[in-house]
Write a protein that binds this DNA or RNA. Structure first.
Lengths: 117, 117
DNA sequence: ATATTATGCAAGTATTTGCTTGCAAATATA
DNA sequence: TATATTTGCAAGCAAATACTTGCATAATAT
């Protein structure tokens, strides 16, 4: 059970995204995280391991507990990848918007200037 | 070969991300896409099917060819998910930056006012 | 010291992935 | 019409995933 291990792969799983959501604000220990999910503690533990292996999670030992802390900066890779396309599609939407507005203006002129039919 | 089919899952695969990159600017037909990759046409075809099933891709039949067009807006789901954490980590970085600057100012005062060392 | 708590590690399994090869169907071209 | 081109569909397979249960270990609490 080990192979490609990157951020994109890591966040593909809904449980792992939920885990990130849980620990984004402040570190939480393993059992507390596990209790929130239907699946077994072992399953959650594996998810934590995966998150940790790809750098999205930092585990700090504190006595017999382990605090899991999110390293959100690691999401930057995803952020940048999506952002390039976000710019593209936003740009297209804006172009479309302007086109529609232009049409509206022209339509008004058609009405007021020429008073057709 | 069918189960969870969402955008996060779709972009988890590097080949599929590359395909999106290829067709982001303009539609491309299946074979042209397949030629760009080491894997077989069938493998690429399957990736296209997955991208299409989760709405990231639109296929337009044109004679015997099929043009694959990216529907980048579908990435919005990912964009929004990442963006919430992006704000969080950027906020923290800024807070840290301000803290450091504050320290620098105080250090200067220490130097000029008290001449300690 | 003993029981309890918080976790990890290992073995085993069902499902999903990612690929490949071979064959069929539809459209275009000579 | 015969042939080439562009794809899809299906069967088969190895590797990866996501889980589970059971057992081991280390730190606390009693």
């Amino acid at each position: 059970m080990e192979a490609r291990r990157d951020v994109f792969q890591a966040i593909a799983d809904p449980t792992r995204r939920a885990i990130i959501g849980m620990i984004a604000k402040e570190p939480v220990n393993v059992n507390t995280i596990a209790e929130q999910f239907e699946v077994s503690r072992q399953a959650v533990s594996l998810h934590l391991k995966i998150l940790s292996e790809c750098g999205l999670l930092n585990i700090k030992q504190s006595g017999r507990e382990r605090l899991c802390e999110a390293k959100l900066e690691k999401l930057n890779e995803v952020h940048e990848w999506v952002e390039q396309y976000h710019k593209l599609w936003k740009g297209r939407l804006n172009a479309l918007k302007q086109f529609v507005e232009q049409e509206e203006i022209q339509a008004k002129h058609m009405n007021s200037d020429k008073k057709e039919y």
